[in-house]
Design a protein around this nucleic acid. Structure first.
Length: 284
DNA sequence: ATAATTTGACCACC
DNA sequence: GGTGGTCAAATTAT
């Protein structure tokens, strides 16, 4: 049976995570309010508000558990009550056996939009000098090796949304297919995204566009990537890139590419071949 | 004790 | 319905 398990003590980690998620949602609402309300604006804002409320509810519950409140009840917040499935009878057969298990939140997430910035690399190592936390692994159809999923270690402290997927290829020597998704917002380079000075970044866009074309066609990828890296470094001095009217536009691919190359050391760059994943529909 | 990883459930998207 | 991306409890590492 589902026991009336009370929160035995304040779970600091959990609370920090809940509040950080709420904070992130609030920031997204703020960002939403700075743009003209689009078609999905009201719906998205509603979802975000529910997330914020849920974070507060959970945070408060962790601080002041009511004697009649189980963890299950907490999760029946306004955010979720429409989708609670409860505990099925077959739960008793799972690896947790008769223990209380909260299952209703699993998989309750918003899948990322495909226009998210992506960068694909092939590398003999899955290390890249950045702090990643593994959060999943999946076997992939027609692939010998599973795919691992990583998110930024600072996801909850700084709301950083960067993730990466790593998959070992069936090559000899061993190589890893690495896909970076989203941009790190937990470091100084991301400041350019929130920088104010609005002016025309068209010239910079053209420069990067040409360089990307070079990288795509060149046999000597190391040289062109180095070239691109230095260009990116210089572009980091131009906060207007990717900004229009003081707002960040959809050229996240570019910023991601610039950021990631900017972060790499020269040796690492030399080892890699990068395949920039550019969505042509972007104003690039 | 805390942080990181493993693992199967859950569900969005095709 | 199948696939793969994400979540979170359980487990392992530090």
């Amino acid at each position: 049976m589902v026991s009336a398990r009370i929160f035995p003590k304040i779970n600091k980690r959990k609370m920090v995570r809940e509040l950080a998620q709420g904070h992130e949602s609030a920031q997204r609402i703020q960002a939403l309010l700075q743009k003209p309300i689009g078609e999905n604006g009201p719906e998205l804002a509603g979802q975000l508000v529910e997330k914020v409320l849920r974070s507060f509810e959970l945070g408060l519950a962790l601080l002041e558990p009511s004697p009649h409140q189980t963890e299950e009840n907490v999760h029946k917040s306004s955010f979720e009550k429409h989708q609670i499935s409860g505990f099925s009878s077959e739960d008793s057969g799972n690896r947790s056996n008769n223990r209380f298990v909260r299952r209703d939140r699993r998989g309750c997430y918003k899948r990322r939009k495909s226009l998210e910035a992506t960068l694909v690399t092939v590398s003999p190592t899955m290390e890249d000098g950045q702090a990643w936390r593994k959060y999943g692994q999946k076997s992939i159809l027609n692939s010998k090796f599973p795919r691992s999923y990583f998110r930024c270690t600072h996801k909850y402290e700084h709301g950083c949304k960067a993730t990466k997927q790593v998959q070992m290829m069936e090559d000899d020597p061993v190589e890893y297919h690495i896909t970076y998704i989203g941009i790190h917002t937990c470091n100084t380079h991301s400041m350019m995204m929130t920088a104010n000075p609005p002016h025309n970044g068209d010239h910079a866009k053209e420069e990067v566009k040409e360089k990307v074309a070079e990288v795509k066609e060149s046999d000597d990828s190391t040289a062109t990537i180095d070239n691109l890296s230095s260009l990116c470094s210089s572009l980091l001095e131009k906060p207007a890139f990717g900004l229009q009217d003081g707002r960040f536009e959809q050229s996240e691919d570019t910023v991601s590419m610039m950021y990631m190359l900017g972060m790499e050391d020269d040796e690492a760059l030399g080892r890699r071949f990068c395949d920039f994943h550019l969505d042509e529909s972007h104003d690039f």
